[in-house]
Amino acid sequence: MIELKSPAEIERMRITGAFVAEVLDELRERARVGVNLLDLEHYVRDRIRRRGARSCYWDYAPSFGDGPFRNVICLSVNDAVLHGLPHDYALADGDVLTMDLAVEIDGWVADAARTVVVGTAAAEDLRLVRATEEALEAAVSAMRPGNRLGDVSAAIEAVAAEYGYPVNTEFGGHGLGRTMHEDPHVPNRGRAGRGLRLRAGMTLALEPWFARTTDRIVVDSDGWTIRSADGSRTAHSEHTVAVTDGGPRVLTALPRVQGRQRGA
């Protein structure tokens, strides 16, 4: 069942989204060579506590994980791309770090992810990160009333194909609002003109993620961290986006760029 949100409810989700964006931006600056993943985890715990927010990850126990999850952020390094369990690891020069954060404020959820390269960046890693960012931009542009869900998925797949990256369909985007995971599932591959018709009030987390040379995944021994099956590096970009009569609205953008994105 898909719950359509009113403009007032979308605005409340935007408040949550702004907080998520701010924390991820702060982590981007903190993710430096020598910084321990657990230090980043505890920083986010403190930010959530001070804001009076609630982590959507803490105690999360879905069927695909070895739950409950007892952290407030997913931190995935190099060949890890999703659900990375923060652990005692110091970031090294050239590491690719994906940071995925979902919180709830006053009953409304927002979810976003960013991938950064720590220290010295290899050109092929920057290319991979940029591919996910461009795929996300293309997916956001397709979030208009009257379009279909397949248009969003096809937009992601087209960017992956342009870059030459394979696409996994086991994990993708999802609806969200009062909870972190709602209908519908948003695959990162699809056919334009097919699927559910988009309506104003729909709110989706769009999350293209690619591995450089495979579409197959494996689960780490921690029961959570998802890695590329061949050990190739990965990247992941995500925004919470609302379909509105005026076009797509990114709810997890920093306030200083929100107006530019909405006016595009």
Results as ranks from 00 to 15, higher is better:
residue 32 R to K: 14
residue 130 R to F: 06
residue 249 R to I: 02
residue 218 V to G: 01
residue 264 A to K: 14
residue 172 G to Q: 04
residue 136 L to M: 09
residue 240 T to Y: 02
residue 39 D to A: 15
residue 67 G to P: 01
residue 124 E to M: 08
residue 52 G to M: 06
residue 179 T to D: 02
residue 57 Y to P: 01
residue 210 F to A: 11
residue 259 G to Q: 15
residue 249 R to S: 13
residue 178 R to H: 03
residue 212 R to H: 11
residue 92 A to S: 14
residue 231 G to F: 00
residue 58 W to Q: 01
residue 162 E to Y: 10
residue 29 E to W: 10
residue 72 V to N: 12
residue 231 G to R: 01
residue 30 R to G: 11
residue 52 G to V: 05
residue 37 L to N: 10
residue 216 R to P: 05
residue 72 V to G: 06
residue 231 G to E: 00
residue 66 D to C: 03
residue 121 A to N: 12
residue 204 L to S: 00
residue 73 I to G: 09
residue 146 G to T: 11
residue 116 V to K: 08
residue 224 W to M: 13
residue 112 A to V: 06
residue 253 A to Q: 14
residue 93 D to I: 13
residue 224 W to E: 09
residue 125 D to P: 07
residue 31 A to S: 15
residue 10 I to H: 03
residue 51 R to G: 13
residue 43 Y to D: 08
residue 96 V to L: 15
residue 157 E to Y: 06
residue 128 L to P: 07
residue 13 M to T: 09
residue 126 L to P: 10
residue 30 R to K: 14
residue 122 A to I: 06
residue 237 S to W: 07
residue 127 R to L: 09
residue 239 H to M: 07
residue 137 E to A: 15
residue 225 T to G: 09
residue 115 T to Q: 12
residue 196 L to N: 02
residue 17 G to N: 06
residue 142 A to I: 07
residue 27 L to H: 10
residue 231 G to T: 00
residue 75 L to N: 14
residue 86 P to Y: 11
residue 28 R to F: 10
residue 92 A to K: 15
residue 138 A to G: 08
residue 91 L to I: 14
residue 78 N to P: 04
residue 135 A to T: 11
residue 251 L to Q: 04
residue 217 I to Y: 08
residue 205 A to F: 00
residue 202 M to G: 01
residue 189 R to H: 11
residue 53 A to F: 04
residue 150 G to N: 07
residue 65 G to F: 02
residue 224 W to K: 08
residue 253 A to H: 13
residue 174 H to Y: 02
residue 22 E to I: 08
residue 197 R to W: 04
residue 199 R to G: 06
residue 128 L to G: 10
residue 105 I to Q: 07
residue 82 L to A: 13
